[in-house]
Design a protein around this nucleic acid. Structure first.
Lengths: 129, 129
DNA sequence: TTTAGTTACGTAAGTCGTAATCATA
DNA sequence: TATGATTACGACTTACGTAACTAAA
């Protein structure tokens, strides 16, 4: 029996579907096609053994477990994104200029790790898994 | 060039290699073979554009960027594990029994995908990716 | 009929393991 | 030579997209 293993693409799909409430819209955002997103969500549910969404005619509504897991997944993806940014080479380079917004502590040292919130405009690279 | 995308298996390999300081030993722990682990580390480095380890005769020593990223990766994997545990179904139940439950619409056609909730079996496998 | 999600299936891409190669003590 | 990492390559597995299907309004 092929043990499917959780994947970052699946987590991204999960978060996106939860945000837009629809596999169709999520697929467009992810530059994928409906069946692909369906499979990613389904394989996640299979692995976790939990139904993450309730399928209604209008789209996808998270179950309580789904909503909780979505929050965790969102955090994981965010941390991974930050981790990537932290060690990104060529920080002062020209390509892929990143704009960072920080609500606190930016006057002392810059950039600071202790921001309360970041906004990063990441070129296409960080968007898709 | 094919854009390789970060994978949880790669992160697991990264953390393991960093902990044991050797691809050979890490491969054994991961139930993989040397070249496979080598590729996972290399593709991570390629994607990040950073050298994560310094290759010395005795094994693998993390670079500063590598050490930092390993910490982040470790945290991510831990959080993901916790998230899985949080929503794990059937916490005290009998495992290994398949139960399909559908609260609705099962009288028309079976099986139906429009159930409000399913319960399906999941043999335990939270450990490995 | 329209909208949305799912399944079937062929093809493309990725991953693994074996074996050979390179580098260092 | 001995140890450990890397590359080459064939086989297997997985993931995508197209097309067809099912369910609900």
């Amino acid at each position: 029996m092929p043990r499917r293993h959780m994947d970052l693409k699946q987590l991204t799909a999960l978060v996106t579907v939860a945000e837009v409430g629809s596999i169709t819209k999520a697929a467009r955002l992810l530059h994928l096609v409906q069946p692909s997103v369906t499979r990613q969500i389904r394989s996640l549910e299979d692995e976790l053994g939990v139904s993450l969404f309730r399928r209604v005619a209008s789209g996808m509504t998270p179950t309580p477990e789904g909503a909780l897991f979505v929050e965790r997944a969102r955090r994981v993806l965010l941390e991974l994104d930050r981790a990537r940014a932290e060690i990104r080479p060529d920080p002062g380079g020209v390509r892929g200029v990143v704009t960072l917004g920080c609500s606190r502590a930016w006057s002392r040292s810059w950039p600071s790790r202790w921001c309360e919130r970041w906004t990063s405009i990441t070129p296409a690279s960080s968007s898709g898994w």
